[in-house]
Write a protein that binds this DNA or RNA. Sequence first.
DNA 1: CAAAACGTCAACCGATCGGTTGAATATGAC
DNA 2: GTCATATTCAACCGATCGGTTGACGTTTTG
Lengths: 115, 115
Amino acid sequence: MDLSASPRLDAVFAALADPTRRAILTMLLEDDMAVTDVAAPFQMSLAAISKHLAILAEAGLISQEKRGRVKWCKLEPAAMEGAIIWIQSFGAFEPLDLDAFERFLETELQAPQAE
Amino acid sequence: MDLSASPRLDAVFAALADPTRRAILTMLLEDDMAVTDVAAPFQMSLAAISKHLAILAEAGLISQEKRGRVKWCKLEPAAMEGAIIWIQSFGAFEPLDLDAFERFLETELQAPQAE
DNA sequence: CAAAACGTCAACCGATCGGTTGAATATGAC
DNA sequence: GTCATATTCAACCGATCGGTTGACGTTTTG
Protein backbone atom coordinates (compact mmCIF):
# COMPACT_ATOMS: atom_id res chain seq x y z
CA MET A 1 0.00 0.00 0.00
CA ASP A 2 1.93 2.96 -1.20
CA LEU A 3 0.31 5.72 0.73
CA SER A 4 3.19 7.96 -0.25
CA ALA A 5 2.11 8.28 -3.87
CA SER A 6 -1.02 10.29 -3.29
CA PRO A 7 -1.79 13.25 -5.53
CA ARG A 8 -4.21 14.37 -2.85
CA LEU A 9 -1.42 14.61 -0.29
CA ASP A 10 0.81 16.26 -2.87
CA ALA A 11 -1.77 18.98 -3.38
CA VAL A 12 -2.54 19.50 0.29
CA PHE A 13 1.07 19.69 1.43
CA ALA A 14 2.03 21.88 -1.51
CA ALA A 15 -0.85 24.20 -0.75
CA LEU A 16 0.25 24.44 2.87
CA ALA A 17 3.85 25.17 1.92
CA ASP A 18 3.17 28.80 1.12
CA PRO A 19 2.92 31.36 3.94
CA THR A 20 0.35 33.48 2.13
CA ARG A 21 -1.93 30.47 1.73
CA ARG A 22 -1.48 29.46 5.35
CA ALA A 23 -2.36 33.00 6.38
CA ILE A 24 -5.49 32.83 4.24
CA LEU A 25 -6.56 29.59 5.87
CA THR A 26 -6.05 31.14 9.28
CA MET A 27 -8.19 34.10 8.28
CA LEU A 28 -10.94 31.75 7.11
CA LEU A 29 -10.89 30.10 10.51
CA GLU A 30 -12.70 33.19 11.74
CA ASP A 31 -15.39 33.32 9.12
CA ASP A 32 -16.21 32.85 5.47
CA MET A 33 -14.89 35.68 3.33
CA ALA A 34 -15.23 37.19 -0.11
CA VAL A 35 -12.20 37.07 -2.39
CA THR A 36 -11.70 40.84 -2.23
CA ASP A 37 -11.77 40.78 1.56
CA VAL A 38 -9.31 37.92 1.67
CA ALA A 39 -6.98 39.95 -0.51
CA ALA A 40 -7.26 43.15 1.50
CA PRO A 41 -4.52 42.54 4.10
CA PHE A 42 -1.96 41.43 1.53
CA GLN A 43 0.35 43.60 -0.49
CA MET A 44 -0.03 41.59 -3.65
CA SER A 45 -2.53 41.94 -6.45
CA LEU A 46 -6.06 40.59 -6.33
CA ALA A 47 -5.19 38.25 -9.20
CA ALA A 48 -2.39 36.73 -7.15
CA ILE A 49 -4.73 36.07 -4.23
CA SER A 50 -7.27 34.65 -6.64
CA LYS A 51 -4.64 32.18 -7.79
CA HIS A 52 -3.77 31.24 -4.23
CA LEU A 53 -7.44 30.63 -3.52
CA ALA A 54 -7.70 28.45 -6.62
CA ILE A 55 -4.79 26.37 -5.37
CA LEU A 56 -6.41 26.01 -1.95
CA ALA A 57 -9.70 25.04 -3.59
CA GLU A 58 -7.97 22.53 -5.86
CA ALA A 59 -6.46 20.93 -2.78
CA GLY A 60 -9.90 20.82 -1.20
CA LEU A 61 -8.83 23.04 1.69
CA ILE A 62 -11.47 25.62 0.88
CA SER A 63 -14.71 25.67 -1.07
CA GLN A 64 -15.92 28.62 -3.09
CA GLU A 65 -19.50 29.58 -3.72
CA LYS A 66 -20.55 32.47 -5.91
CA ARG A 67 -23.51 34.49 -4.72
CA GLY A 68 -24.25 37.42 -6.95
CA ARG A 69 -20.99 39.01 -7.92
CA VAL A 70 -19.32 37.93 -4.70
CA LYS A 71 -17.46 34.63 -4.41
CA TRP A 72 -17.44 33.35 -0.85
CA CYS A 73 -14.57 31.28 0.45
CA LYS A 74 -15.15 28.72 3.16
CA LEU A 75 -12.58 26.75 5.07
CA GLU A 76 -12.80 22.96 4.62
CA PRO A 77 -10.64 21.57 7.40
CA ALA A 78 -11.65 18.01 6.62
CA ALA A 79 -9.28 18.15 3.67
CA MET A 80 -6.41 18.20 6.15
CA GLU A 81 -7.32 14.86 7.60
CA GLY A 82 -5.28 12.85 5.14
CA ALA A 83 -2.26 15.00 5.80
CA ILE A 84 -2.56 14.79 9.54
CA ILE A 85 -3.08 11.05 9.47
CA TRP A 86 -0.05 10.62 7.27
CA ILE A 87 2.10 12.69 9.59
CA GLN A 88 0.77 11.01 12.67
CA SER A 89 1.76 7.64 11.30
CA PHE A 90 5.27 8.69 12.16
CA GLY A 91 4.28 8.25 15.68
CA ALA A 92 6.36 10.68 17.61
CA PHE A 93 3.29 12.55 18.66
CA GLU A 94 1.38 10.72 21.31
CA PRO A 95 4.06 10.83 23.93
CA LEU A 96 4.86 14.42 23.41
CA ASP A 97 1.60 16.15 22.59
CA LEU A 98 1.82 18.27 25.67
CA ASP A 99 5.53 18.87 25.83
CA ALA A 100 5.75 19.51 22.14
CA PHE A 101 2.97 21.99 22.23
CA GLU A 102 4.53 23.76 25.13
CA ARG A 103 7.92 23.95 23.44
CA PHE A 104 6.28 25.12 20.28
CA LEU A 105 4.49 27.92 22.06
CA GLU A 106 7.66 29.03 23.75
CA THR A 107 9.92 29.00 20.74
CA GLU A 108 7.63 29.99 17.91
CA LEU A 109 5.01 32.04 19.59
CA GLN A 110 6.91 33.48 22.52
CA ALA A 111 4.14 32.45 24.86
CA PRO A 112 3.75 34.75 27.87
CA GLN A 113 4.07 31.92 30.36
CA ALA A 114 7.55 32.96 31.35
CA GLU A 115 6.75 31.71 34.84
CA MET B 1 1.16 36.02 16.31
CA ASP B 2 1.61 35.40 12.66
CA LEU B 3 2.40 31.76 12.83
CA SER B 4 1.70 31.58 9.12
CA ALA B 5 4.93 33.26 8.12
CA SER B 6 7.30 30.54 9.21
CA PRO B 7 10.15 29.49 6.94
CA ARG B 8 10.38 26.35 9.01
CA LEU B 9 6.82 25.39 8.11
CA ASP B 10 7.44 26.37 4.50
CA ALA B 11 10.34 23.95 4.32
CA VAL B 12 8.59 21.09 6.10
CA PHE B 13 5.38 21.29 4.09
CA ALA B 14 7.27 21.73 0.83
CA ALA B 15 9.43 18.73 1.66
CA LEU B 16 6.34 16.64 2.36
CA ALA B 17 4.67 17.71 -0.88
CA ASP B 18 6.70 15.32 -2.99
CA PRO B 19 5.73 11.63 -3.15
CA THR B 20 9.31 10.45 -3.55
CA ARG B 21 10.30 12.27 -0.39
CA ARG B 22 7.31 10.92 1.52
CA ALA B 23 8.25 7.43 0.39
CA ILE B 24 11.80 7.99 1.61
CA LEU B 25 10.54 9.09 5.02
CA THR B 26 8.37 5.99 5.22
CA MET B 27 11.37 3.81 4.41
CA LEU B 28 13.38 5.50 7.14
CA LEU B 29 10.64 4.65 9.60
CA GLU B 30 11.98 1.11 9.45
CA ASP B 31 15.60 1.87 10.02
CA ASP B 32 18.46 4.22 9.25
CA MET B 33 19.73 3.83 5.71
CA ALA B 34 22.67 4.72 3.51
CA VAL B 35 22.03 7.03 0.56
CA THR B 36 22.62 4.27 -1.98
CA ASP B 37 20.17 1.98 -0.23
CA VAL B 38 17.58 4.73 -0.06
CA ALA B 39 17.96 5.20 -3.80
CA ALA B 40 17.72 1.51 -4.68
CA PRO B 41 13.91 1.15 -4.97
CA PHE B 42 13.53 4.24 -7.12
CA GLN B 43 13.87 4.50 -10.84
CA MET B 44 15.64 7.81 -10.77
CA SER B 45 19.32 8.58 -10.54
CA LEU B 46 21.31 8.51 -7.36
CA ALA B 47 21.99 12.21 -7.74
CA ALA B 48 18.26 12.91 -7.78
CA ILE B 49 17.78 10.95 -4.56
CA SER B 50 20.74 12.77 -3.06
CA LYS B 51 18.98 16.04 -3.80
CA HIS B 52 15.75 14.81 -2.24
CA LEU B 53 17.67 13.82 0.87
CA ALA B 54 19.27 17.24 1.02
CA ILE B 55 15.83 18.84 0.92
CA LEU B 56 14.60 16.56 3.69
CA ALA B 57 17.69 17.36 5.75
CA GLU B 58 17.29 21.07 5.15
CA ALA B 59 13.74 20.81 6.47
CA GLY B 60 15.07 18.95 9.49
CA LEU B 61 13.03 15.86 8.69
CA ILE B 62 16.13 13.70 8.52
CA SER B 63 19.68 13.95 9.79
CA GLN B 64 22.69 12.68 7.91
CA GLU B 65 25.86 11.39 9.44
CA LYS B 66 28.84 10.32 7.42
CA ARG B 67 30.69 7.28 8.68
CA GLY B 68 33.51 6.30 6.40
CA ARG B 69 32.36 6.65 2.86
CA VAL B 70 28.78 5.92 3.78
CA LYS B 71 26.33 8.66 4.70
CA TRP B 72 23.62 7.40 7.00
CA CYS B 73 20.17 8.92 6.93
CA LYS B 74 18.08 8.98 10.07
CA LEU B 75 14.45 9.98 10.40
CA GLU B 76 13.82 12.99 12.64
CA PRO B 77 10.09 12.93 13.28
CA ALA B 78 10.33 15.74 15.77
CA ALA B 79 10.67 18.11 12.83
CA MET B 80 7.04 17.38 12.03
CA GLU B 81 5.85 18.77 15.31
CA GLY B 82 5.40 22.30 14.04
CA ALA B 83 3.48 21.11 11.02
CA ILE B 84 1.18 18.83 12.96
CA ILE B 85 0.48 21.48 15.55
CA TRP B 86 -0.27 24.03 12.87
CA ILE B 87 -2.71 21.69 11.14
CA GLN B 88 -4.31 20.63 14.37
CA SER B 89 -5.11 24.22 15.20
CA PHE B 90 -7.81 23.89 12.56
CA GLY B 91 -9.64 21.65 14.87
CA ALA B 92 -11.45 19.06 12.84
CA PHE B 93 -9.35 16.29 14.25
CA GLU B 94 -10.73 15.29 17.59
CA PRO B 95 -10.03 11.58 17.45
CA LEU B 96 -6.94 11.46 19.53
CA ASP B 97 -5.55 14.86 19.92
CA LEU B 98 -8.02 17.30 21.30
CA ASP B 99 -8.18 15.11 24.35
CA ALA B 100 -4.47 15.48 24.81
CA PHE B 101 -4.75 19.18 24.23
CA GLU B 102 -7.44 19.51 26.82
CA ARG B 103 -5.44 17.56 29.36
CA PHE B 104 -2.57 19.84 28.55
CA LEU B 105 -4.64 22.89 29.21
CA GLU B 106 -6.00 21.49 32.44
CA THR B 107 -2.81 20.21 33.93
CA GLU B 108 -0.29 22.68 32.61
CA LEU B 109 -2.10 25.94 32.16
CA GLN B 110 -4.00 26.25 35.40
CA ALA B 111 -5.58 29.34 33.92
CA PRO B 112 -3.48 32.14 35.37
CA GLN B 113 -4.83 34.60 32.83
CA ALA B 114 -8.41 35.75 32.83
CA GLU B 115 -9.69 35.01 29.35
C1' DC C 1 -28.69 53.14 -19.49
C1' DA C 2 -23.73 54.02 -17.67
C1' DA C 3 -20.50 53.35 -14.21
C1' DA C 4 -18.47 50.91 -10.55
C1' DA C 5 -17.39 46.65 -8.03
C1' DC C 6 -16.10 41.64 -8.11
C1' DG C 7 -13.36 38.33 -9.84
C1' DT C 8 -10.98 35.70 -13.49
C1' DC C 9 -8.24 35.14 -17.74
C1' DA C 10 -4.21 35.44 -20.60
C1' DA C 11 0.23 36.59 -21.38
C1' DC C 12 4.40 37.42 -19.55
C1' DC C 13 8.48 37.31 -16.15
C1' DG C 14 12.28 35.52 -13.25
C1' DA C 15 13.04 31.91 -9.87
C1' DT C 16 12.70 27.49 -8.32
C1' DC C 17 11.76 22.41 -8.97
C1' DG C 18 12.62 17.75 -10.26
C1' DG C 19 15.15 15.39 -13.12
C1' DT C 20 19.32 14.17 -16.17
C1' DT C 21 24.33 13.47 -17.27
C1' DG C 22 29.26 13.46 -16.58
C1' DA C 23 33.05 14.73 -13.84
C1' DA C 24 34.95 15.09 -9.24
C1' DT C 25 35.95 13.76 -4.37
C1' DA C 26 36.52 10.75 -0.64
C1' DT C 27 36.97 6.46 1.37
C1' DG C 28 37.60 1.38 1.54
C1' DA C 29 39.33 -2.98 -0.38
C1' DC C 30 42.90 -5.72 -2.80
C1' DG D 1 49.18 1.99 -5.62
C1' DT D 2 45.04 0.73 -7.96
C1' DC D 3 40.53 -0.02 -8.43
C1' DA D 4 35.87 -0.04 -6.99
C1' DT D 5 32.31 2.07 -3.94
C1' DA D 6 29.69 5.96 -2.05
C1' DT D 7 28.24 10.40 -2.69
C1' DT D 8 28.19 15.03 -4.28
C1' DC D 9 28.96 18.75 -7.66
C1' DA D 10 28.07 21.41 -11.79
C1' DA D 11 25.81 22.29 -15.70
C1' DC D 12 21.90 21.80 -18.13
C1' DC D 13 16.81 20.95 -19.29
C1' DG D 14 11.74 21.56 -19.43
C1' DA D 15 8.00 22.42 -16.22
C1' DT D 16 5.97 24.68 -12.60
C1' DC D 17 5.62 28.58 -9.16
C1' DG D 18 4.54 33.07 -7.48
C1' DG D 19 3.98 37.25 -8.99
C1' DT D 20 2.70 41.22 -12.33
C1' DT D 21 -0.25 43.77 -15.69
C1' DG D 22 -4.12 44.71 -18.65
C1' DA D 23 -8.24 43.23 -20.76
C1' DC D 24 -12.52 40.94 -20.03
C1' DG D 25 -17.29 39.12 -18.41
C1' DT D 26 -20.80 39.70 -14.59
C1' DT D 27 -23.48 41.73 -11.37
C1' DT D 28 -24.85 45.60 -8.74
C1' DT D 29 -25.74 50.42 -8.16
C1' DG D 30 -27.01 55.17 -9.34
